[in-house]
Amino acid sequence: MNLAEKIKQKYSSMVLEATAIAGGDPTIVAKKETIKNLMTALRDDVDFQFNVLMDLFGVDYLFWEEKEKRFEVVYNIYSISKKHRLFVKVPVKETDAALDSVTDVWPAANWFEREVWDMFGIRFNGHPNLKRILMYEEFKGHPLRKDYPYNKRQPLIGPMH
């Protein structure tokens, strides 16, 4: 039984599905409501010991017919002691684009979550300082959403189009 299946068995109430992504890393799809509990458990569980958050990012599946929910937030976590890696995907609805912050679990999540907020407009409840990190505060919209026109100009300085 691989890692993803083990986790699914142990935390079946919080995990929807165990799969693998291209490349073969074990992946689970988790429920949005309980994400913080699941992450805390994965960090503290002696069997898993996921003590590093390596990456956290958003994905916009606007043009994917087969996806029910528009966004996904993906966590890439790693255990230094166990030497194993896990991807956790959390589907997020467009109408309710918010989920719990994991900054209390791994402080490294702070800037990653700000980036996801900046680029995709997904809010993180309980984040200590959720403001834009790459774009300027006056910027309107979230540029990595697939319906944001890539060449739309809204400059601080210069002509408006």
Binding site: P143, Y150, G158
Partner: peptide, 12 residues
């Protein structure tokens, strides 16, 4: 040709 770049510094 995107949201982030100034299209020539002579705008500024």
């Amino acid at each position: 040709d995107n949201y982030a770049t100034v299209m020539g510094i002579d705008h500024i």
